[in-house]
């Protein structure tokens, strides 16, 4: 039973690390600000969620788990709202999303 919890903890931490690095690569490969939000969100939800879940399994039923749960709930509330505020400020600041301009060219058969 001890081994099962240890394995579950390392699995969660490993998945969280993988999602963090995926998000870090994603903010370099996406072409636009409004698509980079996806990559930024995946580090805030899946990456932080899995890492804090792994730490919660490691801590057991103590006060540390309660504090980790409070951090997790707070991140889950504030991360989408700050992303929403950022997108609203970018739209009001005059930044347009990049649209697909290739559609007209593809309709003509070459």
């Amino acid at each position: 039973m001890e081994l099962l919890f240890t394995l579950l903890e390392w699995l969660c931490l490993l998945l969280g690390s993988i999602f963090l690095i995926i998000g870090g690569i994603g903010i370099h490969r996406f072409p636009d600000l409004f698509t980079r939000f996806h990559a930024a969100s995946i580090t805030d939800t899946l990456g932080a969620g899995f890492i804090l879940l792994g730490l919660m399994i490691a801590a057991g039923m103590t006060l540390v788990t309660v504090k980790l749960l409070m951090i997790l709930i707070f991140i889950f509330i504030t991360s989408p709202s700050s992303t929403h505020a950022l997108a609203k400020a970018a739209i009001h600041g005059g930044l347009k999303p990049k649209l697909d301009d290739q559609k007209d060219n593809q309709e003509k058969p070459s």
Binding site: R36, T43, D44, A48, I51, L86, A89, L95
Partner: peptide, 16 residues
Amino acid sequence: YDRILAANIIGTKTVL
């Protein structure tokens, strides 16, 4: 806004 987004990411990762 890219810079503010990156600063937000760095802040969340600091918590972690």
